[in-house]
Nucleic acid binder design. Structure first.
Lengths: 162, 162
DNA sequence: CTCTCCGGATTGACGTGTCAACTCTGCAAC
DNA sequence: GTTGCAGAGTTGACACGTCAATCCGGAGAG
């Protein structure tokens, strides 16, 4: 079949689909974040960090591992941890086995805030996303995102030239 | 069929699908923005604003209409226009027919920057998104986002209680 | 006429993200 | 030993978004 598909610009219809796709995801992200914020005073970033920490042994993870776990750049994590530390959600302490490492630990307050936020957050995900789709459609979403993922990994293109 | 679907928390699999979905969209957004930035020195926001302006009569749109067109809050637009004005991409001037209104107009430099950025941006969309999917899959994306959209519109839930 | 309210737009404060520059310590080369 | 490089983390500058407060000029109520 015609592989000039690989040379031409997107058609108007393709563009429309793209725009709807990315805007819908954006709306979902914003709605979820706003509900999480108002229901438990946590940002989406706080939630990701606390999720990784509370799942870890001793609620503690080395900073670099944490960055890998949630897929953040190191400086982004550093800034965010600074803000969370100021709010008493996490603590930072020198790592025992690695002089360079920093252990990040969820405080009791942090773990409590996560537990409190978790249920409403999961409910929001169900209400806004899961309930919008039939099980069959959910399966389609899975396949499609897998296809997109494969394509993205195949194309380093930007960011890390690993 | 069992409508306790509407009372239970998401399953592990549903959560996995959700996470993949939202993270994939996020990666796409970031990659696109980064390519747009490096290829034409425009942010995604700049692009949206300039797209709406260059499509309008006289490259001019009233500020409030512009906000509606691209679906932004007024204050977000105001901040962004301030930054774009400082860079000489757009201008602002009092509106003739409405004392309160502000006309936003794309400068020559702004229109030129948009034209220059447009082709590489469209190419990036094709490479990162369109090329990842077969035409049939693209159709599925369209249906799924439509379903999500319908669901979101049916559920005001947060933000504007319109 | 004055007072209040309304809608368009702006502003300031603050959290968030990215990029580049920097610190600090260990380790290997010489 | 000192030079310098590499990896972990931090910092500063700046762009971006949101929220609440504000400014401003017209329209009605009295």
């Amino acid at each position: 079949m015609n592989d000039d598909r690989h040379r031409s610009m997107p058609t108007a219809q393709q563009l429309r689909i793209w725009r709807n796709y990315i805007e819908t995801a954006e709306v979902l992200r914003t709605r979820l974040a706003s509900r999480l914020q108002s229901e438990s005073d946590l940002s989406a970033g706080d939630y990701q960090v606390l999720l990784a920490l509370t799942e870890a042994e001793g609620r503690t993870v080395r900073s670099s591992e944490l960055a890998d776990l949630i897929g953040w750049e190191r400086s982004r994590l550093s800034h965010h941890l600074g803000r969370m530390e100021k709010r008493g959600l996490i603590g930072r302490q020198a790592c025992v086995d690695d002089v360079h490492g920093i252990d990040v630990v969820a405080t009791d307050a942090g773990a409590a805030a996560f537990r409190a936020g978790s249920v409403p957050h999961l409910r929001a995900i169900r209400e806004l996303f899961i309930d919008a789709l039939t099980p069959a459609q959910l399966g389609e979403v899975e396949d499609l995102t897998a296809a997109l993922r494969r394509h993205l990994e195949r194309d380093p293109a930007s960011g890390d030239g690993r």
